[in-house]
């Protein structure tokens, strides 16, 4: 885990990558202007529920994902206050992780970020005894920690190992992302940002512009157009879970 690296060095690297990165412009240190993907939308008005007309999704271009880069992970962990380090790293929360793939036929290396795939038919929601594991009207899969009893059945059921169990008491939560001991958690697609009209932190901070966020139901959205024109994959597609996260280049 690298979120404890020197913040100064992290920042300089980020700024450097932004200048050099595709489609990014550093107009002021620490502030990135997105040139790819969709511009930030208007926030959903107060009092209005998430709409079933929308299906939020991500398109991840593995060809652009740089090996060794963990900016998306850092951004996620910073945004959501995932900073704790357990003595056994296997007990750490992994909302998003980088996977290195080596093709057995030709030895080609591909890397990609893996997180909750926000299935339309999520196994975690099916198996949850209390209904704490849930899918919002706009397709975002969440854990209601008010009713999660920590049985971990959803972790057994998730085909992507996207869920983590909080193994120890926490004190460093951010006000926007409540999380705590004894409950299961996973990528929320930065639901608190999305509701404000912003993009998920990982998408915003990817220096390569490898991630696109948008409405899969809207044929005019950037993400829909890309999926229509490029060859995209759903991981473990044979399970027919209809994923909200799609990949290019695998």
């Amino acid at each position: 885990m690298s979120q404890h690296q020197n913040p100064r060095r992290a920042f300089i690297a980020a700024a450097g990558a932004s200048v050099a990165g595709l489609g990014f412009t550093a107009i002021a240190p620490g502030l990135h202007l997105m040139a790819v993907g969709e511009a930030n939308a208007a926030p959903r008005p107060a009092g209005q529920a998430a709409s079933p007309a929308i299906r939020w999704g991500l398109l991840i271009d593995a060809n652009k994902c740089a090996p060794g880069c963990t900016k998306c992970i850092d951004a996620c962990h910073e945004e959501n206050g995932v900073s704790e380090q357990m003595p056994d790293p296997r007990q750490n929360s992994q909302w998003i992780r980088k996977i290195e793939l080596v093709d057995r036929r030709n030895g080609k290396l591909t890397t990609l970020p893996m997180m909750c795939q926000h299935c339309a038919k999520p196994p975690c929601v099916d198996v949850c005894p209390t209904g704490a594991s849930m899918k919002r009207a706009d397709g975002i899969v969440l854990v209601d920690r008010h009713t999660c009893i920590g049985c971990r059945y959803c972790m057994m059921a998730c085909p992507y190992k996207a869920r983590s169990f909080v193994h120890a008491p926490l004190t460093e939560q951010t006000p926007g992302t409540p999380r705590g001991k004894g409950c299961v958690e996973s990528c929320t697609l930065c639901v608190h940002r999305v509701d404000k009209g912003q993009q998920p932190a990982c998408v915003e901070k990817c220096p390569e512009g490898a991630m696109t966020f948008g409405d899969l139901n809207d044929p005019e959205s950037v993400i829909s157009k890309r999926i229509a024109s490029a060859n995209t994959t759903q991981v473990r597609g044979e399970l027919k879970l209809d994923l909200g996260v799609r990949y290019q280049g695998i």
Binding site: V125, D126, V127, C128, P129, T130, G131, A132, T147, C148, I149, G150, C151, R152, Y153, F165, V166, K181, G182, C183, V184
Partner: peptide, 25 residues
């Protein structure tokens, strides 16, 4: 062994019919 053993009442009062654990409750 539950992460939130104190929430046994939640398990008793919230029921998800598609969950095998739910049936077991």
């Amino acid at each position: 062994d539950l992460g939130r053993a104190d929430r046994l009442m939640v398990a008793a009062t919230h029921f998800n019919p598609t969950s095998v654990f739910g049936w077991n409750v």
